[in-house]
């Protein structure tokens, strides 16, 4: 039932191919360029992280992959097909706690995703929804309404909902940013455990260097507004090796800071985000 680990041949086939994508917002007064000619490639099973300071266009980029925005330049392909509109082959997990439908219980929220997209029906949908809610330890809260849950539990429902759809790629926009530090750590560990179990592909947005190093296997570094690719790095393989993680964090930190060296006194950087 779960997504099979990527076969060796599939690894050479990119799952998501983003090429030279420029994204703009048209407001009444301005034309805001959010990202400029961003390119990257995500392979099946990747935990691909978009890292950059606040306002550099990470959310915009993710929304474009989600199909909510059309690039004015460049192209995006999922499994070789151009991305034209939102669809359930790319499930979004947002930062906001109000992403669950408040009029549906925890179980119904997951079920609704499965049935309204025609993914599964009846008993099969029910089994799938229960299985994924069990995975995120919410088996006891199936019939609770979202407003009775804590922030962390709501995010777990949203993650279960996204995973239950077994999409080609899971798009997560700072899903843990609004949580307290303790819960955030726990959720990060949980996400990695879930990934170990099912090996889904995830595109994960964050402004936290430590979170990027922890979650990702590959990190795309974006420069401040408008977002441009600064580097694409491999994360550490062994998370228990805290020395290696610290070194990588340091390196990323320096890369982002060095940009601002020309303007001394202006010390705002990613840690601000």
């Amino acid at each position: 039932m779960n997504a099979a680990p990527p076969s060796p041949t599939a690894v050479t086939e990119p799952l998501l191919d983003v090429r030279g994508v420029t994204l703009q917002y048209k407001t009444k007064a301005h034309l805001v360029t959010a990202t400029y000619r961003v390119s990257f490639t995500v392979y099946p099973g990747d935990r691909f992280v978009l890292l950059g300071p606040s306002g550099c266009g990470k959310s915009t980029l993710l929304k474009a992959v989600g199909g909510y925005l059309t690039p004015i330049e460049g192209e995006m392909r999922l499994k070789g097909r151009p991305i034209l509109r939102p669809g359930s082959d790319r499930m979004m997990v947002f930062q906001e706690f109000d992403q669950l439908l408040p009029w549906k219980t925890v179980l119904e929220n997951v079920l609704f995703a499965l049935t309204s997209t025609g993914r599964l029906r009846g008993a099969a949908a029910l089994d799938r929804a229960r299985a994924y809610l069990d995975k995120v330890n919410l088996g006891k809260f199936l019939h609770s309404y979202p407003h009775t849950l804590s922030g962390g539990m709501k995010q777990r429902v949203a993650i279960a909902r996204g995973m239950a759809m077994e999409p080609d790629i899971l798009l997560m926009d700072e899903p843990f940013a609004a949580l307290d530090a303790l819960t955030r750590r726990k959720m990060q560990d949980e996400l990695l455990r879930l990934w170990d179990e099912t090996r889904f592909t995830v595109l994960f947005v964050t402004h936290g260097i430590d979170e990027a190093v922890k979650i990702g296997n590959r990190i795309l570094l974006l420069s401040p507004h408008p977002g441009q690719v600064k580097a694409e790095l491999n994360s550490v393989v062994d998370l228990t090796d805290s020395g290696a993680a610290a070194k990588l964090e340091r390196r990323i930190h320096d890369m982002l800071f060095n940009d601002r060296v020309e303007s001394p006194g202006n010390s705002e950087a990613i840690s601000h985000a």
Partner: peptide, 24 residues
């Protein structure tokens, strides 16, 4: 966010209004 969730499920037109907008 709720709008985007509805669109994410591929809901459009009448289904989108009935299943997302009206309850919300």
């Amino acid at each position: 966010t709720l709008r985007m969730v509805g669109k994410n499920y591929g809901l459009r037109g009448f289904g989108y209004v009935a299943k997302i907008l009206i309850p919300a």
